[in-house]
């Protein structure tokens, strides 16, 4: 793997994934869609970490450890975020991010 595919290729894929996730998080109106975009971004970061681990220092485990921490954070974020989506839906009967604007002056 390391011989066949250069590190840059993996990083470019991860960068593309990150940008697509960013676009999704910014442009989706649906709160669930926003969360999906954020998950894509976290995955891109994970790919980066694993690629760095594999290419740069395969004898040490830090990269994978970081990736697992990020998975933890992603899981927590998804749980809390979706709980919020459900709570919002229950109170506003919509999951449109633009509609939830009661704090606007």
């Amino acid at each position: 793997m390391t011989a066949a595919v250069p590190l840059e290729a993996v990083l470019v894929v991860a960068g593309a994934l990150f940008c697509i996730g960013l676009f999704g998080a910014l442009s989706r109106r649906n709160l669930v869609g926003v969360l999906m975009g954020i998950e894509l971004m976290l995955n891109a970061v994970n790919i980066n970490l694993v690629a760095f681990w594999r290419y740069l220092e395969p004898r040490f485990i830090s990269g994978q450890t970081f990736a697992i921490f990020i998975i933890c954070v992603a899981a927590a974020e998804a749980a809390v975020g979706l709980a919020m989506v459900i709570a919002i839906y229950r109170n506003w009967l919509t999951v449109n991010a633009d509609a939830v604007d009661s704090l606007r002056g």
Partner: peptide, 20 residues
């Protein structure tokens, strides 16, 4: 985690907020 849990969670949330 992602396929077995998070995506399921997302699908669940979609189902619970189904009208959109």
């Amino acid at each position: 985690v992602y396929v077995g849990a998070i995506s399921i969670l997302i699908l669940f949330a979609i189902m619970l907020t189904r009208q959109v």
